[in-house]
């Protein structure tokens, strides 16, 4: 690979031209250096109960379904959630703890890169873990690691049951962003998909999963 892998021969001169223009522009209109003030709120913490309470409130506000349990009741709660939504055939990422589906009596399919993504549409739902959650905005962060799977897995099926551990919940956006690994493909999810494009009337469930169930494990 060349140092600047622009398309074959095409844009070497365009690159130099655009960068040259940027330098010319900055020379023509010299601007003073600015210091970025970063005195907004960062590094916040909250007592566990308040944190889970805030996350729950925000998730419900964005029409997600919330279930709370302790780690020893994970399998039971996952099975309840799947049953409540009539899911019979469920996909899981390759690295998910098989114990989480131990109480589920339907069909479980471990996903892999070899499964053509359109086939994921045959699943009734998907169960995954999550990397981080942001309480203040009710946002779940998935980063493609083996417990969360590739992006298509949590996108194509119509039901997403997402397990959030208390230790991964942060108060606000700065605290949550600080825990991300930038190079991983990351998806931020705040409630089910929605549109307000027709006369500004909110419709839940467009292309992503129409139902989002968040299972908060309070002691992990």
């Amino acid at each position: 690979m060349t140092e600047h892998a622009h398309g074959a021969g095409e844009s070497a001169s365009a690159r130099e031209t655009v960068l040259g223009r940027v330098r010319d522009a900055l020379a023509l209109a010299e601007a003073p250096r600015v210091e970025v003030p970063r005195d907004y709120r960062t590094g916040r913490t909250l007592p566990d109960d308040d944190l889970v309470g805030l996350l729950t409130d925000r998730l419900l506000d964005y029409k997600a379904e919330v279930r709370t349990c302790t780690a020893d009741r994970t399998a039971e709660t996952v099975a309840e959630a799947l049953r409540a939504h009539g899911a019979r055939r469920v996909g899981v990422p390759p690295g998910l703890d098989p114990g989480w589906l131990a109480d589920f009596d339907g069909e479980v399919e471990a996903d892999s890169a070899e499964v053509p993504a359109p086939r994921l549409g045959e699943l009734d739902g998907v169960v995954t873990a999550s990397a981080v959650a942001c309480a203040e905005t009710g946002t779940l962060f998935l980063d493609g690691t083996p417990r969360q799977g590739r992006r298509a897995l949590t996108l194509v099926p119509d039901l997403h049951v997402c397990v959030v551990d208390r230790s991964t919940v942060e108060v606000g956006v700065p605290e949550a962003v600080a825990r991300l690994v930038p190079e991983r493909p990351t998806t931020l999810i705040s409630g089910p998909s929605a549109t307000s494009d027709i006369e500004l009337e909110r419709v839940e469930g467009v292309h992503g999963p129409r139902t989002l169930v968040v299972l908060i494990r309070t002691d992990v």
Binding site: T137, R151, A152, V173, L188, S190, G191
Partner: peptide, 21 residues
């Protein structure tokens, strides 16, 4: 923009990820 605390979906990607996308 939408007056939401957070929009439903934000995607971030860095170049190409083998086996994903």
């Amino acid at each position: 923009s939408t007056g939401e605390r957070m929009n439903p979906y934000t995607s971030m990607w860095t170049g190409v990820t083998p086996g994903d996308g």
